[in-house]
């Protein structure tokens, strides 16, 4: 069996995991504030094509990343307006965003179909670390966004559980009435983190598009990664560090079908491998459920409920 292809698979898994971590962190921040944004897939797609068009016309990948991030934040501000200010149903609003974003991305992407960006984000080799056999190419030969993302996820855990604003964020998701009584604006916090989360999702989508220097094609571009990211948040119990491991695991499952095909391993049907990340999430979800309680382990208690002061 070819050893290199497995190393390549693992390295690719870490690459995909970067998109997953960014998107899932975005969802995590949004959900920690009590807002469920199911629109991740739509945001990813729209950011991906916006960043592509920006990078394509300016020739700078960094401008592309910034544009994609801003677009992600703008799209989620629609969700924030509808659900936090106008108190619309969060689930329906998120789904509307998926449909809207998919249409918008395809509309904008029509002229760009099949084109690729010419410059790529160069991988960084972390000195002697990347020369370590097997682990080197997998973990220490990635680009700056991947390294940055993993460090950022760890920083997010610190922010959430060790700082005052992190506490306020968690409290807004668990018990908005108390936050309100403290004199803080529940709506303000929720809008802020929904938009911040959208920015992270947008960065994830842009990076996914630009780092792999793939051609724009809707079905192939995100391929349901947004939904997996949402499941990943549940899988990780709303904890940023557990999210990193989950993302790498899921990324591996996503890459495995291609490897098995290349290695001509046929005793496992490739359809089963395609299902694996979804099946794993499904089983994890059911296993993490607690009978008699609607809340999953770690889930913000007020997730999905609009906060209405008069009805406190």
């Amino acid at each position: 069996m070819n050893e290199n292809i497995w190393i390549l698979t693992s390295a690719n898994a870490v690459t995909i995991a970067t998109t997953l971590i960014l998107a899932a962190l975005g969802a995590l921040f949004t959900e920690r504030s009590g807002v469920l944004n199911l629109g991740v897939e739509g945001i990813l797609l729209t950011s991906a094509i916006s960043s592509f068009l920006a990078a394509d016309s300016t020739g700078s990948i960094w401008i592309g990343l910034v544009v994609g991030t801003v677009v992600g934040s703008l799209l989620s501000s629609i969700h924030a307006t509808l659900t936090v200010i106008l108190r619309a149903n969060q689930i329906v609003s998120g789904l509307a965003l998926v449909i809207f974003g998919t249409g918008l991305a395809n509309f904008l992407g029509k002229p760009a179909e099949g084109r690729t960006v010419t410059t790529i984000i160069e991988p960084i080799r972390l000195g002697p670390l990347s020369d370590i056999p097997v682990i080197g190419p997998i973990l220490f030969t990635q680009d700056i966004i991947t390294f940055g993302t993993i460090a950022f996820a760890v920083a997010c855990a610190w922010f959430l559980f060790r700082t005052r604003p992190g506490l306020e964020l968690r409290a807004t998701g668990d018990d908005p009435a108390t936050v309100d009584a403290q004199g803080l604006s529940v709506s303000g916090i929720r809008i802020r983190y929904t938009m911040f989360g959208g920015a992270l999702i947008g960065l994830g989508g842009s990076w996914h598009m630009l780092a792999q220097s793939a051609a724009w094609h809707q079905a192939a571009t995100t391929n349901g990664i947004g939904w997996i990211a949402l499941a990943l948040v549940v899988f990780a119990g709303w904890h940023p560090v557990r999210l990193i491991f989950g993302a790498i695991l899921f990324g591996f499952c996503l890459r495995l079908p291609f490897t098995l095909q290349a290695e001509q391993i046929t005793f496992i049907p490739s359809a089963f491998m395609q299902m694996l990340p979804y099946l794993a999430t499904l089983i994890a979800l059911i296993a993490l459920s607690r009978p008699g309680s609607k809340n999953l382990r770690g889930a913000p208690k007020a997730l999905g409920n609009p906060f209405v002061r008069d009805e406190r």
Binding site: I91, L230, A271, M275, Y278, L279, L285, I286, N295
Partner: peptide, 24 residues
């Protein structure tokens, strides 16, 4: 009905599994 597991995520995940099944 039994455990209170969110039907939003489970039904959605099964959609992707169903799509793999069709392709299979």
């Amino acid at each position: 009905a039994r455990l209170g597991t969110s039907e939003i995520v489970t039904t959605l995940l099964l959609t992707y599994i169903g799509a793999s099944l069709v392709n299979h």
